[in-house]
Amino acid sequence: MDWFLQQLINGLALGAIYALIALGYTMVYGVLRFINFAHSDVLMLGAFSAFYLTPIIVPMLGAQTVWTALAVILLSAAICAVIGMTIEFLAYRPLRKRPRLTVLITAIGVSLFLEFTGQHEKVFGAATKPFPTLLPKRDLIFGALHISSNDLVVLALTAVLLVAMWFIVQRTKIGMAMRAVSYNEQAAALMGVNVNAVISFTFGLGSALAAVAGIFYAMRAPGIEPLMGVQPGLRAFIAAVLGGIGNLPGAALGGIVLGLLETFFGGMPGLSNYRDGIAFALLILILLFRPAGLLGKLQMEKV
């Protein structure tokens, strides 16, 4: 029972990180209908931004204080938002009217560019770097149960961000514009929606979430390196598809499901090596029975 609860909490915390990343995939898919392969590298850039910002901010706000953590997270999110918008402007916007496959390959190119540039010794270097401790880590102990304070922070923050996303998309003007572009880009443009601005905003928002996720992922990981985004990126991507790509609650649900699966299978002796395989096998099974994902709506081709 303790083991179960322990895995549940670990899984939820990991799933929350995947959910944050998956939101970015899903929002971009919603407005542009393509999978932004470079999203996982924006996550890496978020972690590196925090890595370089922390020593600058600590003298100002103190080591391991809430204010330092908050400042580092917000600034990293802002940096990544700018990076995401820049990528969209330079690499994707010129291809807006081209086949989606072209954009997808470009995204793969951008992803490879960020990863290999990051690995260059004059940039970040390929070696793993220890990530600074942003928040004092305490283990809350209930009997045999160890709950890391970081896990609780991640869960709380994800919940807040999910509600914020929901609010932005459903209750604000820009959110309405996002939904309009997602529904029909041309019609939205004719109704006076500034499509470019909306898409840019979507990239910025998604990238900011990726940065936050990257920082929290880095806190759990042994360290950071330029390829650190690949694995969580892939899982979040699966999560987004699993939940029904383009669907915000779906992405959150998919992320949680994947995080739970990973910790439960990873925690079982003999199965841990198979956990990636199991995640994909599950995805394939679900897609075979629900081709549009768990919460997605199947769009029938009009004949």
Binding site: P94, L95, I105, G109, V110, S111, L112, F113, F116, T117
Partner: peptide
């Protein structure tokens, strides 16, 4: 590899 990546992007932008 950086050049390889830039090549992919460049080609997609100019000769998709």
């Amino acid at each position: 590899m950086i050049i390889y990546a830039l090549l992919i992007i460049g080609l997609m932008l100019t000769r998709p």
